[in-house]
Design a protein around this nucleic acid. Structure first.
Lengths: 170, 170, 170, 170
DNA sequence: TTTT
DNA sequence: TTTT
């Protein structure tokens, strides 16, 4: 409905290498399996407890999917921002199934690598080759990386003072 | 795992009145069904599209559950902050099922009413009685509402100046 | 740096009508003043306390700025997602000043109206005219609203079953 | 006001070691300086651009402050969740100043270490000693770590089926 | 299946 | 002053 927000923020590790499928036009669609976990100390016994939660992530955003395919490996720590989506499907036996996924698609989706260790896991061939490793990747369509524009000189001012400088903050 | 984040933020409307179950100690556990939706214009036909997503929300936090039970009604607009959790269960026919829910439990869960219209829906009797309607409700355990503490006077200062005043900022 | 996140999420009300400046190309840059507040009960006296926080919001995103200019009025409740930015400037007396603002610019910025009451405030003439009121507005550049694409039929499948249907989830 | 949200989410690195002050009761109040940065490629020249943003973070939450004091060092990568707060103060020359900070205080504040490298910087002695390094630290008051409670057996059921098991999700 |  |  108008006036709604559907946002998921995860920081976790990949349980396995990204799974890549291809759209008919050749664009990649990437599935990630991301683990988060909570740890706490049992109030009664005092022993340490841990519960891992596994998340399905589907990346439709072309730019982010390419990044995921290229740089992410089992074990990589990522920051992910997407939306919840529940799919209903019927299995071959005719049983209805639901699958809830975090979808990265269109604006307001983010994928950020939080370590350079990615790929150290599994049978991982490791090594990226690129010099863009460990970067932030915003989702903004096929080919353009949206710059952090600054307003050059707003006509019709009312500026808050003179001599603005945008560098060192404090 | 250590160093992980599992967070869901929703702004949406209740699809029906809250469902209240009771713990053995009488505390409420509340289930909400929340709708969010995306609207966009089809690139080809130019027609307006809308897709509604339904979310299961489970409130274990005692304070938030009581608030939900007392004030929320079908149609209410809410801000929700919780964590993703997928439960696996087996139905009476022996079929394995998964259900992914947004869980409000412990710290870092939030439930905030965003309108005063709540209860205008369904067969809703409406009317709250309380004067607390439309408030923010932080999740911080059974009985204490965590105050927004201000540091009174940090010993061993190094204060940044004199004459701090905390009122109107700009 | 690579691997960083800078995100602000606000739900609050406009303290006054949007302030609109113009870029040299005529595009609007909109400033909002948004109030949020915390309420709590004093632990000692038991009295109700409230503290209002005021936020400066600057909208560079062309699409969001137009929406803000057109639909928002004093009193409107909004959901805002942007990034923190601190500007340093020197006032006419040569005193250095800092101003921290929530910037909506590029991808991952959001502005969503959360009520239809917008404009009920101040000297607000109110009334929008548009039929798009109360909508979600994603920031995705000048002219295209990013559709919620669904993968049509990924070539090289490994699909999870047959008979997927995307409608009512539970 | 009722129905508002004031939330900041940062993933960044400490620019220097935490600064610790003491409350009159001996509790620590910790100040962090956190850097985030955006990188993009200039549309015109094609050159790589980077802009770093510095954030002041103040930790009043007793538990989080202790963790910060104990484990964080210059260079550490952290996930932070807090609220925006602008303080007004008057400097010794009588000039009004504003300072906007991210405050971690009460519920809904989070501090999570995202690397184990923390402390590798500055004159850092490094080494933590503790075995809790790299953990999640929720803000929930002085001494109790809030467990991830599960509802044991809600009285007055309406359960969704039989044989619930909470382990492997998919 | 990850991570600490 | 961080980080890549």
């Amino acid at each position: 409905m108008a006036g709604s927000v559907n946002k998921v923020i995860l920081v976790g590790n990949l349980g396995k290498d990204p799974e890549v499928r291809r759209m008919q036009n050749g664009n990649p669609v990437v599935n990630l399996t991301v683990a988060t976990s909570d740890t706490w100390r049992d109030k009664g016994t005092g022993e340490r407890k841990e519960k891992t939660e596994w998340h399905r992530v589907v990346i439709f955003s072309e730019g982010l999917a390419k990044v995921a395919e290229q740089y992410l490996k089992k074990g990589a720590k990522v920051y992910i921002e997407g939306a919840l989506q529940t799919r209903k499907w019927t299995d071959p036996q005719g049983v209805e199934k639901y699958s809830t996924e975090i979808v990265l698609q269109g604006f307001n989706s983010t994928l950020t690598m939080l370590d350079g260790r990615a790929g150290g896991g599994a049978g991982g061939g490791g090594g990226y080759g690129g010099d863009d490793m460990g970067g932030d990747f915003g989702s903004s369509g096929p080919s353009s990386a949206p710059p952090q524009r600054r307003v050059a000189a707003p006509a019709g001012g009312g500026g808050r003072g003179s001599d603005m400088d945008d560098d060192i903050p404090f």
